[in-house]
């Protein structure tokens, strides 16, 4: 471990410049490998190998000419949209409960809700598969959606809880004191103040659902989601370049959404500091 505080630091605990080099190397380690996807997606060769031959966009054209891929993309977008809205609504309920009321056993309840983050996805997948089988529902995009809601609700609740923690409960009380009902108080005070958190939660849960593979792998029926479709294509070497193209697009889209989500969330909190 090289967490080495330098000598005579300007501030206590200041690390030396060696650590900065390490940090940059670390970022390269995190991002470097992923960059090969976009790189080779523009390479005019069926083989994913050096040397690079010439620039082409034909793999993108090929990917988008694939109707099954378009179908899977639409499925993923639908599932992601429904999951984002549902889990954000559920998360809002939960976040409001844990931030506004003293609830006996709150720690245990919150831990239970957060449990999906700590259980291997394969276990979540097979146990949901057993449940769905026992209830007698056939596998479809609906079962995928149900699984994703379970997975995403903890994320939504975490994001929204921290947002609701960020503003004074007496703001909502002031609204009710001035004659607004709880319902209108939600729309006139809570909602505008929590808006950055809500946007952030919608985006993040959408990404989690859109990128999720293993649950969908177990729960999808005849209609695959995009990650499941990609998985099925990995067996075919001649499909590899178009999978790369697709993967590159997904990664870039995800990155953009994450950055927007985090930015919105941060924007909200910095405003909040002076606001209350």
């Amino acid at each position: 471990m090289s967490a080495k505080p330098a000598h005579a630091p300007a501030r206590m605990g200041d690390p030396g410049s060696g650590l900065k080099l390490f940090a940059i190397a670390y970022l390269i380690f995190i991002y470097g490998p992923v960059l090969f996807l976009p790189l080779f997606s523009f390479n005019d060769s069926i083989f994913v190998a050096f040397p690079l031959t010439s620039f082409t966009t034909k793999w993108y054209e090929q990917a988008f000419a694939d109707e099954k891929m378009i179908g899977a993309l639409i499925s993923s977008l639908q599932v992601g949209g429904i999951v984002a809205v549902t889990s954000t609504i559920l998360g809002m309920f939960g976040a409001k409960a844990v931030t506004r009321y003293q609830i006996p056993g709150q720690g245990l309840i919150t831990a239970t809700i957060m449990l999906p983050l700590f259980i291997p996805e394969i276990i979540l997948g097979i146990s949901l598969l057993i449940l769905i089988n026992s209830v007698g529902i056939s596998l479809s995009l609906i079962t995928v959606t149900i699984g994703h809601i379970m997975l995403c609700t903890p994320f939504a609740m975490a994001v929204l809880s921290s947002r609701l923690h960020g503003f004074d409960r007496s703001l909502e009380e002031a609204s009710m004191d001035l004659g607004e009902t709880p319902w209108m108080t939600f729309w006139r005070v809570t909602f505008p103040l929590a808006a950055p958190g809500i946007v952030s939660s919608l985006l993040l849960t959408f990404i989690v659902s859109f990128d999720e593979f293993l649950l969908s792998f177990f729960l999808a029926g005849q209609e695959p989601t995009l990650p499941v479709y990609i998985w099925s294509q990995l067996r075919f070497p001649n499909k590899l370049p178009s999978v790369l193209a697709l993967g590159a697009l997904i990664l870039i889209a995800s990155c953009v959404l994450v950055v927007v989500a985090e930015w919105v969330r941060q924007l909200g909190t910095s405003e909040q500091k002076v606001g209350v």
């Binding site: 992923v34 990128d211 993967g247 995800s254």
Partner: peptide, 12 residues
């Protein structure tokens, strides 16, 4: 960012 983006693609 990597926390949220496709695990499948990063492994791939």
């Amino acid at each position: 960012i990597p926390f949220w983006t496709s695990y499948l693609l990063r492994a791939f």
